[in-house]
Design a protein around this nucleic acid. Structure first.
Lengths: 109, 109
DNA sequence: TGATCTTTTCGATATTTCTTGAAATATGGA
DNA sequence: TCCATATTTCAAGAAATATCGAAAAGATCA
């Protein structure tokens, strides 16, 4: 992951509604959630949530697919894992091998 | 970690100079870096860097100690690990046990 | 086709954040 | 004490971001 991608992802996550949204999507797992259900769960207006989901989409932290009238959102777990790997890169005082395996395991969730 | 702590940490990380700074500090390990050396490495003005380090301090992602005329900064690896754990909490579709061990390992770096 | 439901887009305003120059504070040495 | 070095604090202006109401776009069903 490149620096600009990490910055975009971190900025996307650093907003209350978006942080709640992605955690709900992560919790929901591969099934994901419809935008409308997410709006209900978050007690958010449809247009505000839509704007925030667009930010998460732009950061590639979520993906969406149309499903009848609704649109289903899913968290991109690989991207989340890549972000965390970027943050911890070169940790352990120049001995990254001590950290990498642990980080790799997260992407297997 | 609570939601407000995670938001503060993510906002702190989502800025170019601060992201570079914490990664350098993580790379530097327990020794950390003097503010002045960090400023040179980042080619940043002292006051701008100081403002950004204050944001990282407020987020508790770094700590500082005076050392003669200089001030030494160190990354708080426990806090970084806690942030990542918060992000991945309840992942794996309600079976967090699959993820927790991997995340716990990161804090051992 | 027309009615309805779901979601997004647009335009405006309010708030927050970033950077900078100037000044202040703290430490160590002559 | 006086001076130089290192870092922070303050105030202000520019830029980015969040939210809202209104309206538009896409999809389904009678």
């Amino acid at each position: 992951m490149e620096k600009s991608d990490a910055l975009t992802a971190l900025a996307a996550l650093s907003q209350p509604m978006r942080l709640d949204a992605i955690r709900l999507l992560i919790k929901a797992g591969p099934t994901g959630l419809l935008a409308g259900d997410l709006a209900k769960a978050l007690e958010a207006r449809a247009n505000t949530l839509s704007a925030n989901l667009a930010v998460l989409l732009n950061a590639k932290l979520v993906r969406n697919t149309r499903e009848g009238r609704g649109i289903r959102y899913r968290a991109d777990m690989d991207r989340m894992a890549a972000l965390m790997a970027y943050l911890m890169e070169d940790c352990c005082g120049g001995h990254p091998d001590l950290c990498r395996p642990a980080i790799a395991d997260i992407s297997a969730c």
